[in-house]
Design a protein around this nucleic acid. Structure first.
Lengths: 150, 150
DNA sequence: TATTGTTATACTCTATAACTATA
DNA sequence: TATAGTTATAGAGTATAACAATA
C-alpha cells in the first residue's frame, strides 16, 4: 500500500495537510499567547511594543498593516501602550495626518524583559532539534509565509 | 560566505528561527480566523463544532483539553453552539457528572458548509506546491506539534 | 475628495473565582 | 474529598460605523 501521507500525494494529501497545519498553528499560537512575562500587556499590545522597540518609530497605518488588523483595532492596542506609559504618540513632521509611535524608556525596559522570556520556551525546544530538523522548519515557514503574503 | 539561514546553523539560527516561526504562525492564525463562511459562529465555537461533527459526542473536559483552554472557557463556547441550536448537551449514562456534547442536524449542515469554505483558501495554495514542498510542511508540522505537546 | 487616525459600540475568546452536583 | 461542569465577572482583541483633521 502507498503511504500517501508521508509521500505527500497531491490530491489525497492536501486535505489532511490543511488539518495538520491548522492544528500545529493553533496550538503554537495559543502557547505563544500564554507565554508572557507578566500581566502588564496582552499579546497584541506586547507584540507592537517589541516591534517598536526593535524598529523605531512607526505610523499607525504601518503597524496595523503589519499586524493584519484594522487601523481602529491597532489604535486601541496603542492606547494600552500609551496608557501604561510604554509608548507615546507624536505628530509626523512631514505629514500632519500621520502619527508616529515611539517607545518610552520604560517601554524599552519592558520590551527587554519580555523579549527574552517570551521566546525562551520555543527557543529551547528548537535548539534541542538537530540541524536538519531546524532546516525543515525554516523552509516550511518560508513556504507558509509565501502563502499568507499572497 | 555561508548562507546561514538556509543551512540552519545551530547557535546563530535559533533566535532568528523563533522570530520566523512566530511571524508565520501569527499570520496564518489571523488568516484562519478571518476565513469563516458566515458570522453565525466565532472561530473557537466553529472549531468545536467541526470537531464534534467529525469525531462524535465528546465530554466537555475532553474538548477543553483538546483546545488547550480552561473548562469554563469551553463551556461558554459550547453555550454558543447550543444557543444557536447547533449542538445539545446530554448526560453521560455511565457517569452523571459528565456531559456529552452532540451535534444537531442543523449543526451538521453548518459544519459541512464551513468545512469546505474554511479550508478552501489554504488547500488551494498547498495544492499548488510540489510534492517536496508539501512534504517539508508536513514534517515541520510534526516537529512543531511535538514541541507543543511537550 | 482622499488619507490618516480616533472614538463609540458590540462581539468573541479567554481567564479566575465561586458554586452545584455527582463519584 | 475529588471530579465534572456551570455561571458570574472581567479583560484583551477585533470589527464596523461615524467622526475629525490634514493633504
Amino acid at each position: 500500500m502507498e503511504t500517501s501521507a508521508s509521500h505527500g500525494r497531491s490530491d489525497a494529501g492536501a486535505g489532511d495537510l490543511v488539518a495538520e497545519v491548522r492544528t500545529a498553528v493553533g496550538n503554537l499560537y495559543r502557547r505563544f499567547r500564554s507565554e508572557r512575562a507578566d500581566g502588564a500587556l496582552g499579546d497584541a499590545a506586547l507584540d507592537v511594543l517589541l516591534y517598536l522597540a526593535k524598529s523605531g518609530p512607526q505610523t499607525l497605518t504601518h503597524l496595523s498593516e503589519r499586524a493584519g488588523v484594522a487601523p481602529a483595532s491597532m489604535s486601541q492596542s496603542v492606547n494600552r501602550l500609551t496608557a501604561g506609559g510604554y509608548a507615546v504618540r507624536a505628530p509626523d513632521p512631514t505629514d500632519g495626518r500621520k502619527v508616529l509611535l515611539s517607545v518610552t524608556p520604560e517601554g524599552d525596559r519592558l520590551a527587554a524583559t519580555n523579549r527574552s522570556h517570551r521566546d525562551a520556551w520555543l527557543e529551547a525546544h528548537l535548539a534541542a532539534l538537530d540541524t536538519e530538523d531546524r532546516d525543515v522548519i525554516t523552509r516550511a515557514c518560508a513556504l507558509l509565509g509565501g502563502i499568507t503574503a499572497s
